[in-house]
């Protein structure tokens, strides 16, 4: 099992957001998490990545059998967890090239590998830039500074491609993308897809799932995963909205 979440509770400023999440992700799988606004999807992603403003009050998160909750943020990243942010932040003056080089070499160091040579690094940049169809114009600029919404999202996928994580969590990477960009982002994700990796996509829209076909779809509602199904569940949600789930829960 790559990721195992058991009865996870988390709060912020005393307000409980996650109220007993259970989730299992195996290597090779693609999961989609859907759910109404404000139900805790981004919070779940943040807690997995290790954001400390969220306090875990109960439960367990295992990653490759290791207790994830004990690891500092950067160690989780070096262990292969990648979070594609819903709102990527700007870092003025730090070029994407410099940023990625620092990140990649930190990850390599953690695994006892030598830093990549300049040439090898640049070759990798070129390859991945092609994959997500972004221009050098962009990678020479400061991280996310002045990027359009879509450019920011593409940059997230570019970074994912560079770092080749084992578990990628993409938080609404599709929102704000035009149709072409959506296809490009999906290509990036599908290129990463392998029997050793897993991907969790958080999305509001079924259309992304036409490009990235999930194995399993979950509905997160009020801090809990209340429904799990195959890809047809996404279609059902698209058609019916979330009200029927709410009703179903009430009658239970």
């Amino acid at each position: 099992m790559l990721l195992q979440i058991k009865n996870l509770h988390a709060q912020i400023n005393g307000k409980e957001i996650l109220r007993g999440v259970n989730l299992e992700v195996k290597a090779g799988e693609v999961h989609a998490i859907m759910g109404p606004n404000g139900t805790g999807k981004s919070t779940l992603a943040s807690v997995i990545a290790g954001r400390e403003v969220f306090e875990v009050t109960a439960g367990e998160v295992l990653y490759n059998g290791k207790n994830l909750l004990e690891m500092p943020v950067e160690q989780r990243a070096r262990e292969g967890i990648f979070l594609g942010f819903q709102y990527p932040v700007e870092i003025p003056g730090v070029s994407i090239t410099n940023f990625m080089r620092t990140a990649l070499n930190e990850v390599r160091k953690y695994h006892g590998q030598e830093p990549l040579s300049g040439a090898a690094f640049l070759a990798r940049m070129e390859e991945k830039k092609k994959l997500v169809e972004i221009q050098s114009k962009l990678t020479n600029r400061s991280v996310n500074e002045g990027f359009s919404g879509g450019e920011k999202k593409k940059n997230e996928i570019f970074q994912m491609a560079m770092l080749e994580p084992q578990l990628a969590i993409l938080d609404e990477t599709d929102s704000g993308l035009d149709i072409d960009a959506l296809r490009i982002v999906a290509n990036g994700v599908n290129a990463l897809r392998s029997k050793d990796n897993a991907i969790i996509v958080i999305t509001h829209y079924q259309r992304l799932l036409d490009y990235i076909v999930p194995d399993i779809v979950h509905v997160l509602f009020d801090g809990k995963i209340v429904k799990t199904g195959g890809k047809e569940l996404a279609l059902e949600l698209e058609g019916k909205g979330y009200d029927w789930i709410r009703k179903e829960l009430e009658t239970r």
Partner: peptide, 16 residues
């Protein structure tokens, strides 16, 4: 904190 978390999430420790 967001900038710091962003970097750390890419494997860069807080100091760096």
């Amino acid at each position: 904190d967001d900038q710091l978390f962003y970097c750390q999430q890419r494997g860069i420790d807080a100091e760096s």
